[in-house]
């Protein structure tokens, strides 16, 4: 009996997923593009795709996408490293952290992550944990370290 209900529910979910998957993917894609454009303060070329990341020039800026485990699943970050000032700006584009506790990393809820925009890239790597959200803030730190490492590899 339980398995029949489970099968029915599963079927319902698969159908909805198949029906909405394309729209959802395109929504997330355009949100990520908008976030990149906002961070760069300039438009990205129309042919730009998230699979092109990392993107940019080593003497100007590097845009990258990185994900690190949070408290509830993966957290997806977009990062922009600027060569002249050696700063790293980060934005969270996808997360499921606990509302009111771990969701301060989302720039739409709290300006917390924007305070590091014009600090040196090292500010992230020596980031203090936020009390009550240790796992979440560790994820931000790991993502920053990861972004700097990929940048170093990319730029040789």
């Amino acid at each position: 009996m339980l398995s029949i209900v489970a099968a029915l529910c599963g079927l319902m979910l698969v159908a909805t997923k198949a029906f909405t998957a394309e729209q959802i993917a395109s929504n997330h894609h355009s949100y990520a593009l908008k976030t990149i454009e906002h961070l760069l303060q300039q438009e990205v070329p129309a042919t730009f795709s998230l699979t092109d990341l990392p993107y940019g020039e080593c003497d100007n800026y590097i845009v990258n996408q990185i994900s690190a485990a949070g408290y509830v699943g993966e957290i997806q970050y977009l990062t922009v490293w600027r060569a002249q000032q050696d700063t790293l700006s980060m934005r969270v584009v996808r997360h499921s952290e606990t509302p009111g506790i771990g969701d301060f990393i989302d720039h739409q809820r709290s300006p917390w992550i924007t305070q590091f925009d014009f600090e040196s890239a090292q500010a992230f790597t020596t980031l203090d944990g936020v009390s009550g959200a240790t796992v979440t803030s560790n994820s931000v730190r790991r993502a920053a370290i990861g972004a700097l490492k990929t940048k170093d590899i990319y730029c040789g």
Partner: peptide, 20 residues
């Protein structure tokens, strides 16, 4: 178990529709 299963399915569908 059945109630929670049905409710969880509908919640997931609502989330997917909202996301889309």
């Amino acid at each position: 178990a059945v109630f929670v299963l049905v409710i969880a399915s509908f919640t997931t569908i609502a989330t997917l529709l909202l996301e889309a």
